[in-house]
């Protein structure tokens, strides 16, 4: 009886000490994968994913509570990059990606209230108070945060026109 208790205690103690030492030497600070993912994300903290910001979304994707496709501005490109990094298989078809879109101001409706330019994460909307605003095409990320702020519904999301450089050959119909 005593031998059994002693030997089990001894065994447990020895193994515990060994593991304790090992954990000292093999400890990992934070989660490097999350940091990598944060570096991949757009970083505009637009909030369309439902998380407070890009770092929140990255953490959620890593622990599996959010799909890699949760970032609309990142689009398919980001989703497949994240999936490749995490070794996940991802269903890209679920991602509503009908080409990049940008915001467009209907000039006759704009009252120059400046509400939109305040929320734009990339400062893509230019225009002073009481002046008709304009969207700076190259800077707009298509996050659509401005659309709901507009009191006169002057802002809308319009797809970018397809050009020869951007055209993608359609996938062959599956046989």
């Amino acid at each position: 009886m005593l031998a059994a208790v002693l030997s089990l205690t001894l065994l447990g103690a020895v193994l515990g000490v060994v593991l304790g030492i090992a954990s000292k030497f093999l400890s990992v600070e934070g989660n490097p994968v999350v940091d990598e993912l944060i570096a991949m994300m757009p970083g505009s903290n637009c909030g369309q994913c439902g998380f407070p910001g890009c770092s929140g979304a990255a953490a959620a994707i890593v622990d599996g509570s959010a799909p890699p496709t949760c970032c609309p501005p990142g689009g398919k490109a980001l989703a497949s990059a994240i999936a490749a990094r995490l070794g996940l298989s991802v269903d890209l078809s679920g991602l509503a990606d009908d080409g990049p879109k940008i915001a467009l101001v209907a000039e006759e409706l704009c009252i120059g209230c400046c509400r939109c330019s305040k929320v734009c994460p990339t400062d893509a909307i230019i225009g002073a108070a009481k002046q008709v605003h304009n969207v700076f095409r190259e800077a707009c990320t298509g996050c659509a945060s401005c659309v709901e702020k507009c009191p006169t519904e002057a802002l809308s999301m319009k797809p970018l026109p397809v050009t020869l450089q951007h055209w993608v050959m359609p996938r062959p119909l599956a046989a």
């Binding site: 089990l8 065994l11 193994l15 060994v18 090992a22 093999l26 400890s27 990992v28 490097p32 994968v33």
Partner: peptide
């Protein structure tokens, strides 16, 4: 007990040396 310890050790080692594989 022994197996669990060995596995624990392996896990720590992989987490340290290859986070991708760990994931």
């Amino acid at each position: 007990l022994v197996i669990a310890s060995v596995v624990q050790f392996t896990e720590m080692f992989i987490k340290k040396s290859s986070p991708g594989l760990y994931q």
